[in-house]
């Protein structure tokens, strides 16, 4: 399972970078979305994947019996997803406004502010 995840994450990162290198701003934002998903999956994978072992403490005990899954990475990913949702929503609105104002979706045409 973990090696499969490693391949998936690798492909996601590669696809994200490829999309970000395209000239169209829409594809660039798709690249950013893939990138944040890849990072989230990576956190999930490196923290050790365990199936069917919820981190619950049975009644009467003060510590979990036997090994359990680590709940912290899932909390991290949840936070990261919410944050990514916020910033990517902004990015989508931004490229729409930019397209309206500049009149092109080609990044090569957007060089007014370059030096």
């Amino acid at each position: 399972m973990e090696s499969l995840m490693a391949y998936v994450i690798g492909i996601l990162f590669a696809a994200a970078i490829y999309m970000m290198l395209r000239r169209s701003i829409v594809k660039m934002v798709i690249g950013l979305i893939l990138l944040s998903n890849a990072a989230n999956l990576l956190i999930f994978a490196v923290s050790g994947m365990k199936r069917g072992a919820p981190p619950l403490i049975p009644e009467g005990a003060s510590a979990p019996l036997g090994p359990v899954a680590d709940p912290l990475p899932q909390a991290l990913i949840l936070t990261a997803i919410v944050i990514a949702f916020g910033v990517l929503a902004f990015a989508v609105v931004l490229i729409r406004r930019a397209y309206e104002i500049v009149g092109t979706d080609d990044l090569d045409q957007m060089k007014d502010t370059d030096t």
Partner: peptide
């Protein structure tokens, strides 16, 4: 403004990256 949009695309992309 136009310059702001163009600047912002670069700023936003690289910072999100």
């Amino acid at each position: 403004e136009r310059a702001q949009m163009e600047g912002a695309i670069k700023y936003v992309t690289l910072n999100l990256f």
